[in-house]
Nucleic acid binder design. Structure first.
Length: 300
DNA sequence: GCCCAGGTGAAGC
DNA sequence: GCTTCACATGGG
């Protein structure tokens, strides 16, 4: 048994087949920045830098750590990944999508940060969500200790802090009509009217119903929070990309409406539907992205 | 100028 | 019950 109490600012997670870049940029988390020395962000209140190496994932913090479980948890390094793949229904689309980026993983994020971020996500592109979240953190987060040479970083602002903001302070972070939604969510969470901590003990239906009580949170945003913040692997967020994927791949040439697609996804993709969803999402955005508009119109 | 973006809620039929 | 629309803002 090793119970050495070693404090280090660096560690290496030996790991095969984890695509850090794809995972950090796949629209589940919005605070990762590729800087000159690696991927930087704030996780569990700590500044962190990650690097993909030949042996796995290198990590560096500003303050010495005796225990890296918080980061293993965030990166979900202990997930039995092969059994996730085995649980997928056998179909060519899903096989193609998951082999297109086999190292893509789901993260396990802080539920409040995840909830707040996805409230800001509605009809926004991922880059724009990142910009809004960054402004929010700069203005209302707390500075965190960084390594020498890194740029400044802030924690994600607490629900209590955001509950104290005026609507115009929030709107000044470019979030537009989402400001009152974020404000209401912050107040409900700060007042324990919604107990985020308790959601993990509920089943997925109960937990979803709780989240949907928050104004501005519908089925899609709730499912993002269930999946990325709580690890309900059955949650299957249906956004515009997934809708496109389901229609093209599973219902080609038919006019299927969203409610039917949701019912289909609930039955079809199984216990780890959320993972299937992430592969389809990534696949659509990278391989099937909309062809550039032709500039040359005269040429038929 | 146009259309679209990890949507939702409310109003209109 | 369904369908349509407003809601800010910025990128392509």
């Amino acid at each position: 048994m090793k119970r050495s109490c070693v404090f280090e600012t660096r560690t290496l997670f030996t790991f095969e087949n984890y695509d850090l870049a794809a995972t950090l940029c796949s629209g589940q988390a919005f605070r990762w920045k590729l800087q000159s020395l690696g991927w930087e962000s704030v996780v569990a209140g700590r500044w962190i830098r990650l690097n993909q190496t030949a042996k796995g994932i290198g990590a560096e913090t500003a303050l010495p750590q005796s225990d890296w479980r918080w980061l293993r948890h965030y990166l979900q390094l202990d997930l039995d990944f092969p059994s996730v793949l085995k649980s997928f229904p056998p179909d060519e689309h899903l096989t193609r999508a998951s082999s297109a980026c086999a190292g893509l993983r789901l993260l396990r994020q802080d539920p409040w940060e995840c909830l707040a971020s996805f409230i800001l996500s509605s009809t926004k592109q991922i880059v724009q969500i990142q910009q809004i979240v960054e402004l929010l953190c700069e203005r209302f987060g707390e500075p965190v200790t960084i390594s020498e040479g890194a740029e400044r970083w802030f924690s994600f602002p607490s629900a209590t802090r955001l509950a104290a903001c005026t609507e115009s302070e929030l709107r000044a972070c470019k979030m537009g009509f989402r400001a009152p939604y974020l404000s209401a969510a912050a107040r409900m969470v700060a007042a324990r009217e919604i107990d985020l901590e308790a959601l993990k003990d509920l089943n997925v239906l109960q937990a979803r119903a709780e989240l949907i009580r928050i104004p501005g949170v519908g089925r899609k945003i709730a499912d993002c929070v269930l999946l990325f913040g709580f690890g309900f692997q059955k949650a299957f967020p249906v956004d515009v990309w997934i809708m496109k994927a389901l229609r093209q791949l599973y219902f080609p040439g038919r006019r299927v409406k969203q409610p039917r697609l949701i019912v289909f996804s609930e039955k079809y993709f199984g216990e780890n539907a959320g993972y299937a969803q992430q592969y389809l999402f990534h696949y659509m955005r990278t391989q099937h992205s909309r062809p550039k508009r032709k500039r040359n119109r005269g040429n038929i």
